[in-house]
Design a protein around this nucleic acid. Structure first.
Length: 835
RNA sequence: GCCGGAGUGGCGGAAUUGGAAUACGCAAUUGAUUCAAAAUCAAUCGCCCGAAAGGGAUUGUGGGUUCGAGUCCCACCUCCGGCACCA
């Protein structure tokens, strides 16, 4: 008898799937479209092709493929495509180091991913494959850019930007972590540069509100996005500086504390700072302070533990609620990027203002009485962030602050000194990158069309797309895009006037590429349009999206923004791209994140070669709940391999034996028990799929089934009905393991049941076999387990109590005591309460 | 600091509605097979007392609700993730 040889089995089925193009699906109107089936769009986040696939990829696609198979066998027409997020910095940095072109390195990596995905047996519709770095794809990325530009959703502006000196590029706010470049860890510097932005802030409210439209997203992902958008309701209030004749609006969430404002602070970057101090005694000190702040890193400035610093301006503003003059300061704890870059300081009710007031010996005026002791921090109960009755607030005294809140805003509005306002933490998305390996921004600058000596920004017409990325030799960044050196490419004609013009040399952030790829899959060969609206309407939204939680904020929010913008432009009929989201946990090794530098990486290819793809896939699904992380264990892999080998041997053994038809109602004893176990496993696996993809317990149920079949088989081989039960149990195990181990599942099914398991509907558990005539009755005395008794399932309560009292083990604990209560849970237990 | 999530054997983890704690897997131990090993098969396997029968304690800690709590409530501790001078 041949042993389990995954290489042979896996190659056999992979050839079948490739030759027959088993997983390809057709769009409506195309030949082969399954109009009678409901659709399901199952999608894993597309890989970034760098080097070889790692175990994170294996897990992601193993989980997604299991879901795709499960849906198919429930009668869905499943679209399950694949592509590559191929633009990006790592390939370019590699090019700078080695001189190899990013295109060559990326193509090589894609070839490796493609081959391994086939070797893993992932059920991909390869006819829809795409790479974001191909002109056929980025042509349409550029097309979308132009549509956003037309609508004012893409714009160019000078802005303080996060600059990574090592990568020599601007970063999105999202790519700055703890004041450092997310990619290389270099402290980030602030510069003012002309940059391209997408106006995602225009969608802030809808991005928040439409969480309601999602079917099932992990709660923590929604929370993270909600915090990231950071909506705050409050008021904008205007403070006037009479001396220089300037109004300074501030945003506050606490207009109820206005009477407690004792000073006023501007951010060091505030544009009016110069005017306020120019020619005054404060000028020199302010300038020095602002320069110091500019030199400090974002990390230093963001440190909350640092004592508050600042400089008085020698000016004052008038508090609109009481006409009081309060002094102005500049301090770096006020941020230019949020609100208006200026604040009213209420030290009695704000911890930061309080700290500043203490450092500069400024008055602290309490305007809300404490009623919530926990909200206070020092002995006098200050600063106090809680609620309570107002004091020192003129005609609002005695009112509760919550009540006064609205009245104060109304009053300010009627005086023209303020109004309700909403602020967001979310900033517009900075999309331009001074790098080579990305989609060129399809814009030219034309002096002739410009005015006042400024070049006009002229979009490249659609019929001139794509603006192709030229081949260059030197990829090293020099503060501007390496593309700037490609003079032949940069020098062009203005599409508007035909005179000499220059191309935009920045490229787009790769997150732009991945914000719409899931739409392109639906019509990836279309040369006339980015996609056909009918195809998009048919397949969208993605029914199940699967990926790492590291994309919880950036990618998922950008894709949501694109979907909404494209829907507004009439190109899509959905508001949300991903109805259901599943985030898989990270696999570690020796308790640490895998990295090449630590030398603790796991190469999926090694394990696929040694144990087969089925083992590798099943193992990553069995390690623990897929949404949680887990530590890779070689012994664990071997355990799963043992299980699949047992299933294989069982299949080979039973295949050659004569057996009867399965007859559940005519079976008894072990024959019936094994059939019942098979139906229990069907029920368990099905429910585990439906209950949030609990694959670890689903697989353990199949293990139990195989173990039972193994234990009982030698007795059951005695008659043909028993053999039939073993055969049924084994075929069922193959059918149930198929979503995880598709090759072995297909092989077992073909041998024992005949035909193709993926064309076989998912099995249904027989309710008659899920219940039995007798149950184990648990008997407790005072809640402690004392005996277990077999009892008829339908026995009345009185009989169960009698049975319980009759037990010798129970009697021992009743001796000399009085039973004061009898609790019966039918079919489960009897609890006797004694005194 | 704020917002999430989690604490169960030697390890990964299971436990449906409040009703058998530790399924399944790993590791370990013993036996069978073998010249031997691997592989396979059979069995044991959380802790304490006990030769055994049996008993006791036990799901991060301390309380509570209940006939009964890993599960519900209150307080606390620890770990992980996210955000963080956001007015």
């Amino acid at each position: 008898m041949a042993g389990y040889d995954p290489q042979t089995i896996e190659r056999k089925w992979q050839e079948v799937w490739a030759e027959e193009r088993t997983w390809e699906v057709a769009n409506p109107g195309q030949p082969g479209h399954a109009a009678d089936k409901p659709k399901a769009y199952v999608l894993e986040m597309l890989p970034y092709p760098s080097g070889e696939p790692h175990v994170g990829h294996l897990k992601c696609y193993a989980v997604g493929d299991a879901i795709a198979h499960f849906r198919r066998r429930h009668g869905f027409e499943v679209i399950h495509p694949m592509g590559y997020d191929a633009f990006g910095l790592p390939a370019e940095n590699n090019a700078i180091k080695t001189g190899e072109s990013p295109r060559a390195a990326t193509e090589r990596s894609i070839e490796s991913f493609r081959r391994q995905f086939r070797e893993w047996g992932i059920s991909i519709d390869w006819s829809r494959e795409l790479g974001t770095h191909t002109p056929e794809y980025y042509r349409w990325t550029q097309w979308i850019f132009l549509r956003l530009f037309e609508r004012g959703l893409a714009y160019r502006d000078e802005a303080p930007v996060q600059w990574c000196p090592k990568d020599a590029t601007v970063l999105a706010n999202e790519q700055v972590v703890d004041g450092r470049c997310e990619r290389c860890g270099t402290p980030v510097e602030q510069l003012r540069l002309e940059q391209w932005f997408f106006r995602i802030t225009a969608y802030a409210d809808r991005l928040l509100a439409d969480f309601d439209r999602l079917e099932s997203w992990p709660e923590h992902v929604v929370t993270m996005q909600r915090n990231w958008i950071g909506r705050s309701e409050g008021a904008e209030v205007t403070f006037r500086c009479g001396e220089v004749g300037l109004d300074f609006p501030v945003f506050t969430t606490r207009p109820d504390t206005l009477f407690g404002a004792t000073f006023f602070v501007l951010a060091p970057e505030h544009p009016e700072l110069q005017r306020l101090v120019s020619g005054t005694p404060a000028e020199a000190a302010v300038r020095e302070y602002v320069n110091d702040v500019a030199r400090a890193s974002a990390e230093e400035r963001g440190d909350e533990a640092r004592p508050k610093t600042g400089v008085p301006l020698g000016r004052s503003v008038v508090n609109p609620v009481n006409g009081e003059e309060i002094p102005m300061y500049v301090a770096d704890y006020v941020l230019m990027e949020y609100g208006t870059g200026a604040i009213m300081a209420v030290p009695a009710h704000d911890a930061r203002d309080y700290e500043f007031a203490k450092a500069f010996d400024l008055p602290v005026r309490r305007v809300i009485e404490g009623e919530d002791e926990e909200a206070a921090t020092d002995a006098e109960g200050l600063p106090y962030a809680g609620d309570g009755p107002m004091t020192g607030s003129g005609r609002f005294d005695g009112k509760h602050n919550r009540e006064a809140y609205g009245e104060i805003v109304e009053w300010l509005a009627s005086e023209g000194r303020g109004h309700e306002a909403v602020n967001y933490r979310l900033r517009d998305w900075l999309v331009s990158r001074q790098r080579y390996w990305g989609a060129p921004i399809p814009v030219v600058y034309c002096e002739a069309c410009g005015e006042d000596g400024r070049a006009a920004t002229v979009p490249v017409p659609d019929d001139q797309l794509p603006v192709e990325l030229p081949e260059i030799d030197d990829y090293a960044p020099q503060g501007k895009s390496p593309l700037a050196a490609a003079e032949d490419w940069v020098a062009t004609e203005c599409p508007r006037c035909g005179k000499a013009a220059r191309r935009e040399t920045d490229t787009m952030d790769t997150f732009v590429d991945s914000s719409w790829y899931f739409i392109r899959y639906l019509d990836s060969l279309n040369e006339e349009a980015a996609w056909d609206r009918a195809a998009a309407d048919h397949w969208l939204p993605v029914d199940q999206y699967i990926g790492g939680v590291e994309h919880a904020i950036l990618h998922l929010m950008y894709a949501r923004f694109f979907t909404k913008a494209l829907a507004d432009l009439g190109y899509l009929g959905v508001q949300e791209p991903f109805a259901n989201l599943f985030t898989q946990g990270m696999i570690t090794r020796d308790g640490a994140k895998m990295s090449k530098s630590k030398g603790n990486t796991v190469s999926p290819a090694d394990y696929v070669e040694r144990f087969g793809a089925d083992t590798a896939r099943t193992y990553v699904c069995f390690m623990g709940p897929p949404e949680r992380g887990g530590d890779w264990s070689d012994e664990g892999v071997e355990g799963v391999n043992r299980f699949l080998s047992r299933l294989w041997r069982l299949c080979e053994e039973v295949e050659g034996r004569e057996s009867a038809e399965v007859d559940a109602s005519g079976s008894e004893g072990d024959t019936r028990a094994l059939l019942a176990k098979a139906h229990w496993a069907i029920d368990k696996v099905t429910r585990d799929f439906q209950r949030g993809f609990q694959f670890n317990t689903a697989i353990s149920a199949v293990m139990e089934l195989v173990n039972d079949a193994y234990r009982l088989k030698d007795d059951l081989y005695g008659d043909e009905r028993g053999t039939a039960a073993v055969r049924f149990a084994t075929a069922t195990a193959g059918s149930l393991i198929f979503p995880f181990a598709p090759h072995l599942g297909a092989e077992v099914w073909e041998r024992l049941a005949g035909g193709r398991v993926w064309e076989t509907p998912w099995p249904q558990a027989d309710p008659d076999l899920l219940s039995s005539d007798t149950v184990t009755l648990v008997v407790q005395v005072n809640g402690k387990l004392r005996d277990r008794i077999e009892a008829a399932t339908d026995a009345p309560e009185s009989e169960l109590i009698e049975l319980a009292r009759a037990s010798e083990k129970v009697r021992r604990h009743l001796d000399g005591k009085q039973v004061v209560k009898e609790i019966v849970v039918p079919g489960k237990l009897v609890n006797l309460v004694v005194r």
